[in-house]
Design a protein around this nucleic acid. Sequence first.
DNA 1: GACCAGGCACATC
DNA 2: GATGTGCATGGT
Length: 223
Amino acid sequence: MELNALLLETYRALRQAFGHRNWWPADTPFEVIVGTVLTQRTSWANAERAIAALKEAGLMAPGLLAGMDRESLESLIRPAGYYRQKAARLLRLVGWLVERTGGDLAVLEPLSTDELRQELLGLSGIGPETADCILLYALSRPTFVVDTYTKRVVVRHGLLDGACGYSDLKELFESNLADDVELFKDYHAQLVEVGKRYCRTTPLCGACPLHPVLGDPVGDEDL
DNA sequence: GACCAGGCACATC
DNA sequence: GATGTGCATGGT
């Protein structure tokens, strides 16, 4: 089967099994941006507590957040973990956003996705996954988000070898699927879901909805 | 108590 | 370029 068809079949199987995942839950694109930092290496439930605290305090707005002192921000986002790092990262990111846009994300529209991605990656604390989450889920750019679950599913089924890096995985999906923001949003979310439920350190391939599509895993690499 | 969760920067080799 | 480590809370 062609890669394009295989990747679409994979998505269909996941969508059939799990339903639309409805990522990213948020009231505004700005809230998505804040969430991308808060959820780094952190369960969504804990990131949500921090988001709720910011909203409760009436601070979920670029100008207000950018003006906060670091210690107050740290105490509000504490439940998300890594709160000292994340407070510093949020202040840098939101500071950049305010300076760059004055708080109006529409100002970024003329920039190419690639230009925007490079700017985001230039900020300390914004790596490839966070940058792509911001681009896809907050700014609706057709960029594929990769994470450890993506790698597990892809490598376990021999689509790429274990030495592949972030850009290889990203390329696999972007060059074999049409640029489709809604597809990219839900596809990533589905990969996270199947990763959590079945494609774990010790896989549960038998009941996995991908098994009929991709077959038995190949290799036994520890991912 | 161990292990994991919607990463990233930095040190070291 | 690859590999190891710190960052921190909260659920299972």
